[in-house]
């Protein structure tokens, strides 16, 4: 089943075209990896899908579960099952992780005409998911990402993903800056969640994450376009030859 279909997508930021015609189809049960050098537009693509308002779509279409994605506000996309693990998660002083997740989860439940979770059940769920990503219980009391290390922030993204159980999760360089243990925790979080009804788009700069999350497809994004697609083998090739190999091929 097609979850996401991107056709000839073009996106401007501040008048500059950053995404220059992307086509991509993601079906339920699949894991896609998107690789590419810095500045090629990976985060821009991820943010457009999540609904960031200052990114202007100038052409093309995105269909999510048969509906026009651009008809949905950011929060509606989330309630319909889209999740973005941010490359740079923001710190929100004064809002506790617990309050944040409870509000998010209850908004989601309201959207599905379900009763809000009571405080006990909610805490139970939180503890369970916190364990999955191996974050300390005390973090639930702390403000969202405030004073978190880079690795803690990334694990918090995976924790939120585990809480919200999305249909389409986009992970934007969740592996960057992680040591190997943290990397395994993140990968484990993804693998536990992955099933035939959902899909993952894993944006990464390095192939090492793909040793733990095995992608069905690998795409290379360069200068706002997907310039190559293949299987896991493509990632290994990139690792070996570096991005210069692609750059040369394209820029010629």
């Amino acid at each position: 089943m097609s979850l996401l279909k991107i056709e000839n997508l073009k996106v401007n930021i501040n008048g500059n075209q950053i995404i220059k015609g992307i086509n991509l189809e993601v079906n339920a049960g699949e894991i896609h990896a998107i690789m590419g050098p810095n500045g090629s537009g990976k985060s821009t693509l991820a943010n457009v899908l999540a609904g960031r308002e200052d990114y202007i779509v100038t052409e093309g279409s995105v269909t999510y579960m048969g509906k026009n994605l651009f008809d949905m506000a950011s929060e509606v996309r989330a309630r319909e099952g889209i999740f973005l693990a941010f490359q740079y998660p923001v710190e929100i002083p004064g809002v506790s992780n617990a309050n944040f997740m409870r509000t998010a989860l209850n908004e989601l439940r309201k959207f599905r005409n379900e009763e809000p979770l009571d405080a006990m059940d909610f805490l139970q769920l939180m503890r369970e998911k916190a364990k999955l990503v191996e974050i300390d219980k005390t973090f639930l009391n702390r403000s969202v990402n405030e004073g978190f290390s880079g690795g803690e922030k990334k694990r918090n993204e995976i924790f939120q993903m585990a809480m919200l159980q999305p249909k389409l999760a986009i992970l934007d360089e969740t592996d960057s800056g992680l040591d190997i243990d943290a990397l395994k925790i993140v990968a484990n979080g993804v693998n536990k969640l992955s099933n035939e009804n959902n899909a993952f788009v894993v944006i990464t700069h390095y192939q090492r994450l793909l040793d733990y999350i095995i992608p069905d497809f690998v795409h290379v994004l360069y200068k706002g376009q997907i310039v190559k697609s293949g299987t896991k083998k493509l990632a290994l090739e990139l690792e070996e030859k570096g991005y210069d190999w692609i750059k040369k091929e394209i820029d010629m």
Binding site: E75, I92, P93, E107, F111, L164
Partner: peptide, 24 residues
């Protein structure tokens, strides 16, 4: 704006997101 987007991207409606931030 970034905080607002972060909250909304988790399914929290705009008004609710504002309320959370203002209370914070």
């Amino acid at each position: 704006r970034d905080s607002l987007f972060y909250l909304r991207s988790r399914g929290i409606g705009e008004e609710m997101a504002k309320t959370l931030l203002l209370n914070a």
